[in-house]
Design a protein around this nucleic acid. Structure first.
Lengths: 352, 352
DNA sequence: TTGTATGCGTTATCAG
DNA sequence: CTGATAACGCATACAA
């Protein structure tokens, strides 16, 4: 029963055609007479043929593989991006080989080699341990999502704008002190622009403001205690003012808001809170909170579009004239929910 | 510059060895003298050789691919499972081709064919549209996770036990009416056992109990309104009793709890709430809630173990004697948090 | 320890 | 419209 797999040879023998004709049946069926198409079709089911794409790859060089290296699925933004990227199979047909980077450079380097060995046609990279310079040196179509991408194609949200608008809402709503919570991003990382966007707007507003930084890990307990410390700091500094806090991801924003509430402060009366990502956490929180929405679907589509363009170009041109990297920026959309409320207008209206 | 890739032939020519020797350098280096190993190693860097695993696959038949079909990454349980499965690369070296099932049978069937065409060595299936009978018919090593698996290997949490214990906590804590919220699972699906586990325990307790069912989709607004309707129903039925609600996933439990709280009911005084999954939502909720923990890491490890066993067995035996499917059950761990509190004991202690 | 010959299952090239 | 033959890049039995 452990027969070899049925191959084109077997079908050829069975139908008295040549292997070439069988191949043509799959790749260019119209070049056969309908009669013969039927004969082969019947033979296929009679012999229970299963196609072997590995052999096809070796013969024509097209793997239809795209490699993905993503830091983890811990943050909702990542799992949502992966979800959307995988969803493009229906439109492009590319198969995805997925690796979890886990922030370890050597490991990611290894994964990259592995992907290259499998002759991926393109690479989507979301982790940031491997520099864009190095990535470019492999001469494989690649697009980075929300990370440093000086030398390669990339897609990212307009983080500066999103952060600027967040700060603007906080100040216009009548907050008296502004805060931004983030980690320690490099200058080229998108997260960095959230800081500059916030600061530029806060500066303009004339309000006191501060950026609170911390290296958050993936551990809840740890994250919680770090955020709690920040909350206490803010409370001590401005006990009686209305505070506006912009936090660079929804997971942390949710935890922070819960701390605020459990310590008896009110949202949005005492604290306005704005997150980033528009992940489910922002909707499903006890007080659904305002967030800067990343359009994961559009980011994924743009990434695939840029990748496919490179792949196509590579088939036509010589390898020595590579395309100029394009950096696509996707607009963020601030989604207002209950954690922000313009008390200035509110009062004015009540007075009328 | 668009030279052909460097192959064993080129290296052989460069070093005056044969292709076989070059092959051996990679697969059995000790069979060469150290001298010659060094010569080849130098040639490799000199020629900038990149390995081609596709050719190797065709030659030796081992793709080292494992296919994954997962419904979506919407529920945290899925993305966490995927995270843990991908994490096993470090121990087993298998590469993962990932497809999103999206609940569409025809689509999933297509993905399966695609995976088979790429000669995956094994399949991990978490979606449930394709029956285990059909899956078995493909004679590919396969393991199902948390789904119907009569004819194939599987891994699942002891859902009955988890649900039973959840109901037990609710009744022992002094709830006066028990509820379970779930969808409409088939009898063979693990979710079904959450219902029977709950019912058996509730029955035993002698308390009034009910199972509330609804087809929840992936849309937040819709889910929210359905859960709200359930809350209103419960409220109307037992306005003055202490209610215990066991909900079959943390996402829904979190939404439900927020509804309860926003309607001025207290947790755990008026409502005890228990979720399922131990996903971050259960920890990060405004009131961290008790949940039946699925040990995703162990589930992933068990799945890979069973899969690898099948793959190994297949190499040794004849295909006609397949292994008997094994069904691995992983213990759930109830994680008690603030949404449950034994008011009976509590009062007794206070009286002392 | 090293080499020769052949096969893996397709596709591509060139004829007819 | 169809066929013969040579790639594709590596692994493996068999020899030496």
């Amino acid at each position: 029963m452990n027969k070899k797999n049925v191959t084109f040879s077997d079908i050829a023998a069975y139908t008295n055609f040549s292997k070439t004709t069988i191949s043509r049946y799959f790749n260019n069926p119209d070049s056969l007479t309908e009669e013969n198409q039927k004969i082969i079709a019947d033979a296929l089911t009679a012999l229970d043929y299963k196609e072997n794409k590995v052999a096809r790859i070796l013969a024509n060089g097209k793997t239809e593989f795209i490699g993905i290296i993503i830091p983890s699925l811990f943050f909702r933004f990542f799992s949502e991006m992966l979800d959307k990227i995988l969803g493009t199979y229906e439109t492009y047909g590319y198969k995805f080989l997925v690796f979890l980077g886990d922030e370890k450079k050597e490991a990611e380097e290894k994964y990259l080699q592995e992907l290259l060995a499998y002759k991926i046609e393109g690479l989507i990279i979301m982790s940031h341990t491997i520099s864009s310079g190095e990535l470019a040196s492999y001469h494989v179509p690649v697009v980075a999502i929300e990370r440093e991408a000086e030398h390669i194609f990339s897609v990212e949200t307009d983080n500066y704008k999103g952060a600027f608008e967040a700060a603007q809402i906080l100040s216009e709503d009548g907050c008296q002190a502004l805060f931004h919570i983030n980690s320690f991003p490099d200058e080229q990382e998108p997260d960095y622009k959230r800081i500059t966007g916030f600061c530029d707007c806060a500066q303009k507003s004339g309000l006191p403001y501060r950026v609170l930084r911390e290296n958050f890990g993936f551990e809840y307990e740890d994250t919680h205690s770090k955020l709690k410390r920040m909350f206490e700091e803010i409370e001590k500094e401005y006990p009686d003012k209305r505070k506006g806090v912009f936090i660079s991801n929804d997971t942390h924003a949710n935890i922070f808001m819960n701390i605020v509430l459990r310590y008896g402060r009110r949202v949005p009366e005492d604290y306005e809170i704005i997150g980033f990502d528009d992940s489910p956490a922002s909707r499903e929180a006890i007080i659904p909170f305002t967030t800067v929405g990343q359009d994961t679907k559009r980011l994924a589509e743009a990434a695939m579009e840029l990748l496919v363009r490179q792949i196509e170009a590579r088939k036509k041109r010589h390898a020595d004239q590579e395309l100029q990297p394009e950096h696509r920026v996707v607009e963020p959309a601030v989604i207002r929910r209950e954690s922000t409320l313009n008390l200035v207008q509110h009062k004015t209206q009540e007075e009328k």
